[in-house]
């Protein structure tokens, strides 16, 4: 690629010291996101997908900390910044969209004030210009009669409209990267479709890089360009969305696809992955997935476990599913 990626994460390790020892909710994760690209991050609860996003924007709750690896944004290193530097970065360079739109807006301020505040903080414009831009931002995310609604409080909007306001807020300082953490999980199907379409359109128009964290494979399929599948804090598979979802190489990805009740398949039983995701303080040695994997062999139990780099670059598996194998 000629242009450097907007976000480059290399060997990121997040550690939390606990009474039972140090646990690693994120362990050796590497990926890049280019301008205008949407990277989907999927996994089940506890896979470390939100933790990865929070580490990038410096929102890890103590005592969790970045214990290793590097994060580069537009070529500059951003892990280990001071709080003051981080403040300049958040909102300006990285926009954030969270799951619950009600808790990410200040209930005591009209939405217009929240927007102008953000614009004034990050862009060299005056009060009047900031206000004009706030109206334009609301208009762009599809809030009807934006000029009149600018004085409304968050509780006066429906859930879908609130999430639009949050997106306007995340994008108003024109960041180069947006981290959307389960942006549609709290919304209904029809509203979800509106929000996804909006996010896609805005990012394509502006060339914003997006990290879309979700557990919904359908949303990923329709939205993302590439997908990263996480399991127990590690990347299980990373590749173009179509290839990963239609011809998964990692047994975990294959299992995840098989257990989704796929429309119009008509099979009466869903594929089951036996067992459950390991607890953080009991991640098995070697490949973290081996106790649940039907392909596991001696090599999978031995340290060090497979990584994307040590395998074929797409799936972190010693025995990936080959192209011609029938997917169970």
């Amino acid at each position: 690629m000629s242009q450097p990626p907007v976000l480059a994460v290399r060997n990121l390790v997040v550690e939390i010291p606990t009474r039972g020892g140090i646990v690693r909710p994120v362990d050796g994760v590497s990926y890049t996101i280019a301008a205008g690209e949407i990277l989907g991050v999927v996994g089940e609860s506890g896979a470390g997908k939100s933790m990865t996003g929070n580490a990038v924007i410096g929102l890890l709750d103590r005592p969790a900390r970045i214990a290793g690896g590097e994060i580069h944004l537009n070529g500059a290193r951003i892990d280990g910044l001071t709080l003051a530097q981080l403040r300049r970065l958040r909102g300006k360079e990285i926009g954030m969209v969270f799951q619950d739109p009600l808790t990410s807006l200040n209930p005591l301020l009209p939405i217009g004030d929240q927007l102008t505040e953000t614009i004034l903080a990050h862009l060299p414009v005056g009060q009047a210009e900031a206000r004009r831009r706030a109206v334009a931002a609301l208009d762009e995310v599809g809030i009807p009669a934006a000029a009149e609604r600018i004085g409304s409080y968050p509780h006066e909007f429906s859930g879908g409209m609130r999430q639009r306001v949050v997106i306007a807020l995340a994008l108003c300082a024109e960041p180069s990267l947006v981290i959307a953490d389960e942006p549609t999980t709290a919304l209904d199907v029809s509203v979800q479709a509106q929000i996804i379409a909006l996010l896609k359109r805005l990012c394509r128009d502006r060339g914003t890089a997006v990290m879309l964290v979700t557990h919904d494979m359908g949303v990923i399929a329709e939205t993302a360009d590439r997908v990263a599948v996480m399991y127990a804090g590690r990347l299980a598979e990373l590749g173009p969305v179509r290839e990963v979802l239609t011809a998964p190489r990692h047994p975990y990805t294959a299992g995840l696809m098989g257990s989704t009740p796929l429309a119009s398949k008509g099979q009466r039983r869903l594929h089951q992955i036996p067992g459950a995701m390991p607890r953080l303080h009991a991640i098995p040695p070697g490949c973290a997935f081996h106790p649940r994997c039907d392909r596991a062999a001696e090599r999978c139990r031995a340290d060090p476990g497979p990584t994307l780099k040590s395998c074929d670059g797409r799936a972190a598996c010693w025995f990936p599913i080959a192209q011609d194998e029938a997917v169970a």
Binding site: G160, S190, V191, A193, Q194, I196, G218, E222, L245, M257
Partner: peptide, 20 residues
């Protein structure tokens, strides 16, 4: 139409109008 599909790669959904 609005429900995300597993095989809907790059599908452009015409978002439904209005809310409940």
């Amino acid at each position: 139409e609005a429900a995300p599909r597993m095989d809907g790669f790059g599908r452009e959904v015409v978002p439904p109008q209005g809310e409940i």
